[in-house]
Amino acid sequence: MAGFLYRELRLSWYKIILFMFGMMIYPVLIALLMRNSPDMKDISGGVSALVSGVGAVMAFLIGGTFEVTMFKDDERRKWTYYTASTPDGIKRQIGAKYIVTLFFAMATVTMLTLVNSFAYDGNHDIAIATSLYMVLFYVQLFMRSLEYPLIVRFGGKMGNVVKMVPIAAVVLGGAVYLLFGDLSPFADMSSFWDRLFEALEDSETAGKIALGTGIAALGITVLYYLSYRLSVKWYLKGVDHYAK
């Protein structure tokens, strides 16, 4: 496994560095803004966590792009057959990619925490958003858990199309809800966030959310492992779908 990990880092080191810089642009800009600007007086507490969250979402989205390209870069028949011919080659090849993804997500959380701390040092009214980063970390893993087996099974191009099907279904479901569902919670958008933060301050609600997060995190960790097993199983089936 160490050899495949080394190969992954050796081949992608410049991408890793570029993506690390790229994905931190938004969080750093937001941190600089929140840290010093006198115009940000109203940005404090929960609202500041939301603003930091926007930067964090951008960071995870950009980081996600790297993680997906890492899989697509290896879509060559000769390489696939060579890996399959080595002892435990498929497991190691796929495992290395899942581990690099995990490490990359961990590094993202660490860097976001440092950037958030940097902002907090300048302005103690803003929130420490570590819990939010933890949630985004698991959302990231959840997305990759679904995406990787599809990329492995159907190849990069086709896998993306297949991935779009459930996303389109969710968007369609959302549209149907917006047309026919109960929209009363969103009726007064000016007080929506205030009501949300008020609800979060209730210990019962906070406990329920924490429990839900804990169960989801555990489920996603298991799902991530199962996704790896599925990718190993499907690895050779995806060869016919490679573009080269």
């Binding site: 961990m106 925490t113 570590t130 933890m134 997060t213 804990g214 169960i215 995190a217 555990l218």
Partner: peptide, 11 residues
């Protein structure tokens, strides 16, 4: 009990 190891993994 659930979120502590989960946060540990993320951090």
């Amino acid at each position: 009990l659930l979120t502590t190891p989960a946060t540990g993994l993320a951090m």
